[in-house]
Nucleic acid binder design. Structure first.
Lengths: 146, 146
DNA sequence: TTATAAAAAGATATTTTTATCTTTTTTTTT
DNA sequence: AAAAAAAAAGATAAAAATATCTTTTTATAA
């Protein structure tokens, strides 16, 4: 569905939102550790997210990654767009080049409704929602045993 | 969404279904030409589909690929399973390892319904349906201009 | 103001996917 | 039986995604 980079980015965003606040930032290693992803690869991903302003960072001692209020409103769709591009919005499910409303692929109209709901889901769910869910229910960012 | 191999496989299956019948088979080159895919790559894909019995083939002069009645009932889901594996059935949308009914990811329950409809779509639509659709409406396997 | 801690940036390596090329086997026709 | 046509199989290459390593820049704290 999504690329590894994108999956890691989603996990990282959730992790940073949970662990950081205005004064305490989260270091790269901690993020990688907490999400079971390779450190140098996570570094690249955090650089990208930082460049695109989905998270903020500060260098130097006690530096690290953190989020402002706007960042906490980031949706999954935002993260997917930033890492994988707008394929889910624009591309034909079957990969047909000329598929559109006028010349639809065989499943175009049937998929339209599903796609709409799927995108709505990605746009509706924000990092904050996840934090709230974490309080009550459980889910895991690490590949640990349940 | 799906891999290139899978997209090409779907196109090839539709093409063979349209162009072949009991006596006349379709050659590899014709399939590649008709679906805008590189010949040697399509060769690989047809070998796989043939090995997995989604199409049949015969060697020698006037040989080529063709479908029996059972093949015409192949669904998109069958093609996806054969080429990309069962990821769409088994994997978490967000890529979380421990996501399941008991310890769901933040969108697990919300995605469940979408996933169900999506899979139903893939399973419902068969190659035959597409042939029928082709008679009335238009869609393109080639990247030609509309 | 110097040392240090941390991210940013850049360069390199590995793996997977996609694509291509060559040889072999099978089948049909002559 | 020989030639030819076609897919099957195997080997190789290119591109993209994933992963790693090294150097540079920045900011803090001693």
């Amino acid at each position: 569905m999504f690329s590894k980079s994108c999956e890691y980015a989603i996990k990282a965003m959730i992790f940073v939102a949970q662990k950081s606040d205005s004064d305490s930032k989260v270091g790269l290693k901690e993020i990688a550790e907490g999400t079971d992803t390779p450190v140098p690869f996570m570094a690249k991903i955090m650089q990208e997210l930082s460049k695109k302003k989905l998270v903020h960072s500060s260098k130097g001692p006690n530096g690290g990654f953190y989020m402002n209020k706007k960042n906490l409103k980031t949706s999954i769709a935002d993260i997917v767009l930033a890492t994988d591009g707008d394929g889910i919005y624009s591309k034909c499910v079957l990969g047909l080049k000329n598929c559109n409303e006028k010349t639809p692929c065989p499943v175009h109209h049937e998929y339209k409704d599903i796609k709409k709901k799927f995108i709505a889901m990605l746009e509706k769910n924000t990092i904050t929602d996840f934090n709230e869910k974490l309080m009550t229910k459980k889910f895991f960012l690490k590949n640990e045993e349940n």
